[in-house]
Amino acid sequence: MRKLRRLALAGRPVRLRFTALYGALFLLSGVGLLAITNLVSLGSRINSPVATPPGEQLTLGAAQELIGRLQSRLSEIQALQARQLLIGSAVALAVMAVVSVVLGRIVAGRVLRPLRTITATTRRISADNLHERLAAPGPADEVKDLADTIDGLLERLEGSFAAQRRFVANASHELRTPLATMRASLDVAVAKPEPVPAQTLALADRIRAELDQVDRLLEGFLMLARTQHGALSDRARLSLGHVVSAALVARAADITAKHLTVHDGDVHDDAWTQGSRTLLTRMADNVIDNAITHNHDGGWIRLTTTADGASALLVVETSGQVLDQEQVARLAQPFQRLGTDRTGSGDGSGLGLSIVAAIAAAHGGDLDLRARPEGGLRVAVSLPLAPARAGVAA
């Protein structure tokens, strides 16, 4: 029972606990004040002498009768005063209880106000605005120490994020040079005048394919680092319908090669958004590439672009086998793939949908991945909606 009571108390808000504590203190102070007042009043009643009324000399019997009446009258007055004092004490105690709770809540709110400010500011800071600091004013107390500690943590996190992004970008750039050298050397070796054995040609083609895969992987690293860095330099208003249509036209040959049926009747021009043209185009390309690559021959792709409330929505659904939702939810993370169980091939670097998620987050949107109950995948990208008139004018 004691353990359950402790857990229940720990689950209450801090302000409620402070209110109960301060209210109890104020109430105990009021009870003590009333108790002292009653004790002093009782002592004065007990020790007060009974005065003999002045007047003529009375007989013994008349004097005793008068004294009896006076004592009876005095007892009635004392009882009346006791009742009045008791009623007044009860009313004062009730008023003091209400005042104690109100004062306790006010004092608790004043004490917790800096903590609420720190909590709200910390919740607002994310990976995109780690440069912000709490910078809590006030004297050097416990709250100030807490704010300074959080500022130091944010500074270290900002440095760590920046170092990580620089490392990915620099490593990707540096690795491009040896890859280009290897590809050039391979082309020179294959292009020699003397006959090249068929086995060597097959090996060269395989190495070239692997180099292309590494090149795409590095390009994905660069895009992911740029997206997470938040560098939206070429901002513009554009229609998701136009972007998706352009991506479909560019991949018409791949769609035909896999005999895919594309249902794009719900692609409209009313889904306008604002952001980096390069990144949003890459986002649409990755979504379409994912729908083509991870689809079986003779399958289908259904595309929808629409304006839903304050969001521009892009939905791409594909055919395929029934997938596990827990595994699908992890596809937005880098290097997460469903493997050959999904498409029968191991193509892809595992960065496509993670780049889509990063681009959507950089634009204030999100990515939702769902396994269709009938089989296949549903990819939904939600972005902030831009005014259509401004987009058309642009």
Rank of each mutant, 00 (worst) to 15 (best):
K3Q: 10
L4F: 12
R5L: 15
R6W: 10
L9K: 12
G11Y: 07
R12D: 06
V14R: 09
V14H: 05
R15E: 15
R15M: 13
A20I: 13
A24G: 13
L33T: 03
L34P: 00
A35V: 09
T37F: 12
T37D: 03
N38V: 10
L39Q: 11
V40G: 08
S41D: 14
S41G: 07
V50Q: 07
V50I: 15
P54D: 14
G55V: 10
G55S: 02
T59C: 03
G61E: 12
L66A: 15
L66C: 00
I67T: 12
R69M: 12
L70D: 09
R73T: 13
Q81H: 14
L85D: 11
S89A: 15
L93W: 01
M96W: 13
V99T: 08
S100V: 02
R105T: 09
R110Y: 12
V111W: 14
L112N: 01
R113G: 02
T117E: 11
T117N: 06
T119V: 13
T122A: 08
S126Y: 05
N129K: 05
E132I: 03
R133D: 01
D141N: 15
L146A: 13
L154G: 03
R156P: 02
S160V: 09
V168F: 13
N170Y: 03
T181M: 11
S185Q: 15
D187P: 04
A191C: 02
E194H: 04
P195Q: 12
T200R: 03
L201T: 04
A202F: 08
D205T: 09
R206Y: 09
I207R: 04
R208I: 00
E210Y: 08
E210S: 11
L217V: 00
L222V: 06
L224A: 12
H229R: 08
S233N: 09
D234L: 08
H242K: 14
V244I: 15
S245C: 03
L248W: 04
A252C: 03
A257K: 13
K258F: 09
D269L: 10
D270F: 07
Q274M: 07
R277T: 12
L280K: 00
L280Q: 00
A284V: 07
N286I: 01
D289F: 05
A291K: 02
A291Q: 00
I292L: 07
I292D: 03
N295I: 06
H296A: 11
I301S: 02
T304Q: 10
T304I: 11
T305Y: 10
T305E: 05
T306P: 01
D308V: 04
G309L: 01
L313N: 00
V315L: 13
V316T: 13
G320N: 00
L323E: 02
D324L: 02
Q325T: 04
E326R: 15
R330Y: 03
R330Q: 14
A332M: 02
Q333G: 07
Q333K: 13
S349K: 02
L351I: 08
G352R: 01
I355S: 10
A357S: 13
A362S: 11
G375H: 06
G375K: 05
L377K: 11
V379P: 04
V381H: 01
L385F: 10
A388F: 10
R389I: 14
A394Y: 07
